[in-house]
């Protein structure tokens, strides 16, 4: 049996009628399965785990053998790694999915089945998110085990926060990737666009903001507000906030945020990341429903 048969099996009167949920789950599962078996997944998982383990080993072996292993230093190194790798993974995976299906003719084929376009979109999104979850949790899980083995002082909660928030970041970036995928016709262009977006978020936005802070002497309030636009910064600040319970490591702007918003920071950061998940996905939903030649 193939996917088409599985999809059309909903028409079988003996079975439960197809619901939005069952359609989404079926498509999601197929997407997850495809992703897990693909080369990109293997490559990213290995790269992510290897780099993470390297960071863990180095930070455990560092500190001159004094046993004064860094307070939050390991987490900071892993945050740095997640900032680089996870958005790249999520953006390119998202960008490839619909565009490549379209290119291969698979998309019109799936849509010939009794499923709505939005169900396909969400199903694919969730399936890829599942693959990213596996990749992130396997990588960070092994890092955590190494840290425990090496007797590091990093707390269990901080690693769990890091895992969860990395997934949140992946969810946001995947959403952007899927949006690119619905808008761009060819898979190679979509992936290229995704990489361009990744570069902008990782380097260009921050460097621009830094230049702005220096040249325009931005007040720290504005600097903090502007930094909330970048989901990578939001992820970083949220992780530091959750792990250390203080943002003063980020200097005046962090102090301002901690004093001004206190516990509400969780809501602010959560809201920003949620917006990065929902808004691009919403636009993608509208775009994919409206497009007449797919």
């Amino acid at each position: 049996m193939n996917s088409a048969a599985a999809l059309s099996s909903h028409a079988d009167p003996r079975r439960l009628p197809p619901t939005v949920l069952s359609n989404v789950l079926t498509i999601g599962k197929r997407e997850l399965r495809d992703a897990v078996r693909s080369r990109w997944f293997l490559l990213y998982t290995i790269a992510f785990a290897a780099l993470g383990l390297a960071v863990s080993f180095v930070s455990a072996a560092g500190s001159g053998g004094t046993g004064l292993s860094g307070y939050g230093r390991t987490t900071a190194g892993l945050v740095n790694l997640v900032l680089l790798v996870v958005p790249l993974m999520a953006l390119t995976a998202g960008a490839a999915t619909i565009a490549s299906d379209r290119e291969r003719g698979m998309l019109s084929y799936i849509l010939a089945q009794p499923v709505r376009r939005n169900e396909v979109l969400i199903g694919k999104y969730l399936g890829l998110l599942g693959a990213l979850l596996a990749c992130i949790f396997l990588g960070l899980g092994f890092c955590t085990l190494v840290l425990a083995w090496k007797g590091q002082r990093t707390s269990a909660e901080s690693m769990l926060w890091l895992g969860g928030l990395s997934l949140g970041l992946a969810a946001g970036m995947l959403s952007v990737g899927v949006l690119v995928s619905t808008l761009v016709r060819r898979a190679s262009v979509a992936v290229g666009t995704a990489i361009f977006i990744w570069l902008s978020l990782v380097f260009v936005t921050d460097l621009g903001l830094m230049a702005g802070a220096v040249a325009l002497r931005l007040p720290i309030r504005d600097l903090f507000a502007l930094s909330l636009i970048n989901p990578l910064q939001v992820f970083k600040m949220w992780t530091l906030h959750a792990v250390d319970a203080n943002l003063d490591v980020l200097g005046p702007a962090g102090l301002y945020a901690a004093e001004e918003f206190g516990a509400r920071l969780h809501l602010i950061f959560g809201g920003c990341l949620a917006a990065w998940v929902l808004v691009p996905l919403g636009i993608a939903g509208v775009a994919i429903s409206r497009r007449s030649p797919l």
Binding site: A76, V79, N80, L83, L84, V202, F203, D206, L207, L209, M210, A213, V214, L218, I220, L223, F224, S227, L232, Q233, K236, L240, V249, L250, G251, P252, A253, G254
Partner: peptide, 13 residues
């Protein structure tokens, strides 16, 4: 020189 830049600590930038 510009302490507010600490905001960008730990970032790839």
């Amino acid at each position: 020189k510009q302490p507010s830049l600490r905001l960008f600590l730990f970032s790839p930038a």
